[in-house]
Amino acid sequence: VIDLSTIDPVTSAAERKVYESRGIAFLDAPVFGTKGEARDGGLWIVIGGPEDVYKKSLPVLEPISETLHYMGVGGNGTKMKLVGNLLVASQIVSIGEALTLAKKAGLDLTKVLEVAAVADFKTPIYAGVGAGVIKDDYEVNFPLKLMLKDARLIQAFASRLNSPVSIAVTTEELAKEGVDGGMGELNASAIVKVISNRAGVNLSE
């Protein structure tokens, strides 16, 4: 069994225990990427479980992935997914705050994004989210309601390890505000709209 979902590592461990008790091999293999990457075979997959089982799974995983990352023992794929989602959340929140500040300061957001696309802090998320925001485009690739779920998973995971995750706390607060405001089915980048609404500015041009 290969579980591609984003879930709590505790849940993944319980799944693995049940399957292995029945003699069924189990891999936790959550994915990074949107529906576009899934359609085009461009997912980035992080895998935990027995290495021999991972190697046997390659004919299944390779056609849907751009890269595969074997993270080690069972559970490590799920843990890596939450670590990665924390990085994603931090970038969405930071581009939202940065664009909102820039707008209030009277800067041209197109020019702001031109700088963000080439400077040493550039990321694909800044580019993609920024381009969508200034067009008021929140077409769903990954819905905001699932980002809210993931922010809570990250906090639960980190709490058990006594590791601070202030970005996840902020993300949960912003995502919940958006979901409660009817944005749950919009793209996760709608967090930016929540931030700009708080500041009383419209980021679309």
Rank of each mutant, 00 (worst) to 15 (best):
V1Y: 03
S5I: 06
S5G: 10
T6E: 08
T6I: 14
I7R: 05
D8A: 13
P9I: 11
V10E: 15
V10D: 14
T11H: 10
S12F: 07
R16K: 14
V18K: 12
Y19L: 15
I24F: 13
L27W: 06
A29M: 05
P30L: 14
V31P: 06
V31L: 12
F32C: 14
G36P: 00
E37G: 14
A38P: 07
R39S: 14
D40W: 06
G41R: 09
G42C: 06
I45N: 08
I47F: 02
I47Q: 07
G49R: 04
P50S: 09
P50R: 15
V53A: 14
K56C: 08
K56F: 01
S57P: 01
L58C: 09
V60K: 08
E62H: 00
E62C: 01
E62Y: 00
E62M: 07
S65V: 06
T67A: 12
T67I: 06
L68F: 02
H69G: 00
Y70Q: 03
G72K: 02
G75I: 05
G75C: 11
G77K: 06
K79Q: 14
K79G: 06
M80Y: 07
L82C: 04
V83E: 01
G84H: 11
N85Q: 15
L87M: 14
A89N: 02
A89Q: 07
A89C: 08
S90V: 03
S90E: 03
Q91A: 12
S94W: 00
I95A: 12
T100Y: 04
K104M: 09
G106S: 09
G106Y: 02
L107C: 12
L109R: 03
T110Y: 08
K111S: 11
E114D: 14
E114F: 01
V115T: 12
A116D: 00
A117N: 13
A119W: 13
D120T: 12
T123S: 15
T123C: 08
T123R: 05
T123F: 07
P124H: 04
A127N: 10
G128D: 07
V129T: 11
G130D: 04
G130I: 07
A131M: 04
I134R: 09
I134K: 05
K135P: 01
V140E: 13
V140N: 05
F142S: 10
L144G: 07
L144M: 08
K145L: 02
L148R: 10
K149E: 04
A151W: 02
I154L: 00
I154E: 02
I154N: 02
Q155C: 01
Q155R: 13
A156C: 00
A156G: 11
A158W: 03
R160P: 02
R160N: 12
L161R: 13
L161P: 00
P164E: 05
P164V: 00
P164M: 05
V165Y: 02
S166E: 06
S166A: 12
T170Q: 13
E173P: 02
E173N: 11
E173F: 10
K176Q: 15
G178L: 10
D180W: 08
D180T: 11
G181V: 05
G181M: 10
G182C: 07
M183A: 11
M183L: 15
E185Y: 07
N187D: 15
A188R: 03
A188K: 07
V192I: 07
V192E: 10
V194N: 12
S196D: 09
S196P: 08
A199F: 13
G200W: 11
G200C: 11
G200D: 04
V201C: 13
E205G: 14
